[in-house]
Amino acid sequence: MEPKIKIRDMNFYYGDNKALKDINMNIYEKKITAFIGPSGCGKSTFLRTLNRMNDFIEDTRVEGKITLDDIDIYSKDIDPVELRRKVGMVFQRPNPFPKTIYENIVYGLRKNGVNDKQILDEVVEDTLKSVALYDEVKDKIHKSALELSGGQQQRLCIARAIAMQPEVILMDEPTSALDPISTMKIEELLLDLKENYTIIIVTHSMQQAARISDETAFFLNGEVIEHGETKVIFSNPRDKRTEDYITGRFG
């Protein structure tokens, strides 16, 4: 199968500091790829290169090549705004806008020129259903999103991301701020979503990576130490450092 995203000889710099070194990776369509590794290993930075969110940080630089469907996403002709429409993102902490549930979901659509009420209504219902939030909030979709619980807010943020009909969804530790039950619901949700989306998830929890991902990449000090099928990584890692990390013998 042809990879959805290809990363070739990629380096990333904060000023003079090389934060990511020689990354080469293939990410496949309609699979969940998990990035694991200790704090500060570069996995979040790497995730953010895939939708060019690092562009907002001054004095950063990318070398090498990242392609989405064989198109170089760092080429001059690519508008990062359009790229982010195709590559959605969910953040570590739920960050709904201080608006209604409805307005949260349609925000991206409205800003991209979709104003037909019928379409928007449909999208709100569909996305709420696909994140299994519809039954819980159907009576208050015109109430503030801030009244929802943390887990509900995070599912709303996922709904907001998929309302844009992205091809890829990036998730930066989406359950680290949630309780175990909310976490479980989101994990179930991700397994459903991978039918339609390519999902890349950064996680601190090795159990989570093992439970939901198809592929796992282990990051250490800005390098990818090992990348492959999740089953293999967890049962039979090639690298000693990977083994140390997943068995918890790591600082």
Binding site: D79, V81, E82, R85, L109, N112, G113, V114, I119, E122, V123, D126, T127, S130, Q165
Partner: peptide, 9 residues
Amino acid sequence: MKKIDFKSK
């Protein structure tokens, strides 16, 4: 879900 047509940017 129906595919939405976005305007060009």
